[in-house]
Design a binder for these strands. Structure first.
Lengths: 204, 204
DNA sequence: GGCGAAGCTAAGCAAGCGCTTAGCGAAGCG
DNA sequence: CGCTTCGCTAAGCGCTTGCTTAGCTTCGCC
């Protein structure tokens, strides 16, 4: 936690670990489709055709459409948490918060398709799969709560309602996934703006 | 604009104007269903059974499932805009902003089922219907932008990036619809917290 | 008291859904 | 070579979907 920054504002979100290539094409096709239309409105035929395959080929690599969603959701949640943890660096709680909000916001813009699946398709997961990503979600929330709490402890940040303010800071970044498109500014600039706004929310 | 406050933080969201009563039961049932599962995952049979009717009865009152969504979305958008306009009162831009964010946030919590439909089911509307609610959405955005702009003009608010900050302020309130449930605090308290946070974001 | 309109239901239709089955060709390997 | 495994397709199964049709009852109204 809050060690040396590994420098990247957004972690490179690659899928090379998904093998074979056809499984990866199905996965990235599913991300696009789920982000565009939502899980329920996306058909297995649509996902398969984006990957250039017949509908049945999907089931060679994934046992169900829901499982495809789960793989995306789990990996997306983990990537978001990793970004937050990597950004937890700086000498003061204020600096750490700034760095985390900047990176988390930029990630939601840069990877807004995955972020949309992560944030808005939870209801389509099975209870077991939902429970698994919920664990990661709690870690994400805890990461923000910790830095705010540290700031309260050393008197450098002003936070009246800790859980409420934690949620608000997270909300700011998360909602980026809802409205962001590439023509609405670049992720890095957005990250800087939101980091500034978040810091102002809690400064003494 | 920014006249005398009509006093309510959340406008009473009633559907008495929807006649007959069966049409109203279908509408409120659809709101609950759409908010719970999303438009695509909701069946006409589910909506009808929530209203205590057979599936065919839906088509006596509405020509399609999408039309039902549109009626909800249009009325919900208008109600949200009305809340913002009623709250645009106060002697300074800072006071007006506080009042608007407080009311807008509280509305999204109080009416989180309708708000979820309003904010997250736009993709299911026909292009024509989407265009109609988009007009109301622009008015909502303009309402916030105006007060920030007034604050910049008289030097009472510090806003670097006007469109970006407008979006951020709106985001804060809108995202409430995503996570709010009644057990997470009462809408009025949430409104006050968020009003405070928003004001801090732009104070000189 | 006859009659049309309003509000509803039972039944069902065509289309599309997630997913399965059967089988084919290419690659890997003894 | 002979045989298995892997990745894939064509076809289609059982089911659910949004919506329609035909017909029933209840009501107001002249």
């Amino acid at each position: 936690m809050h060690g040396v920054n590994v420098s990247a504002i957004t972690s490179p979100l690659v899928w090379e670990h998904v093998q074979p290539a056809a499984a990866r094409r199905l996965l990235t096709g599913a991300i696009d489709a789920f982000a565009e239309r939502g899980f329920q409105a996306t058909t297995t035929r649509d996902i398969a055709s984006r990957a250039g395959m017949s509908p049945a080929a999907l089931y060679v690599h994934y046992p169900s459409k829901e499982r495809l969603l789960f793989e995306i959701s789990r990996y997306g949640h983990q990537a978001a948490l990793d970004v937050l943890r990597d950004a937890d660096s700086g000498d003061s709680p204020a600096e750490r918060l700034r760095s985390m909000v900047e990176a988390f916001t930029a990630w939601h813009a840069e990877h807004h398709t995955i972020a949309r699946v992560v944030q808005y398709e939870l209801a389509a997961l099975t209870p077991e799969h939902l429970a698994e990503v919920a664990t990661i979600r709690r870690a994400i929330s805890a990461q923000i709560e910790q830095v705010l709490s540290d700031g309260v402890a050393d008197g450098s940040l002003a936070v009246d309602d800790l859980p409420g303010t934690t949620l608000a800071v997270l909300s700011l970044s998360i909602d980026v996934a809802r409205w962001y498109t590439p023509h609405r500014g670049d992720p890095a600039a957005l990250g800087k703006l939101y980091a500034e706004l978040a810091q102002r929310m809690v400064q003494t």
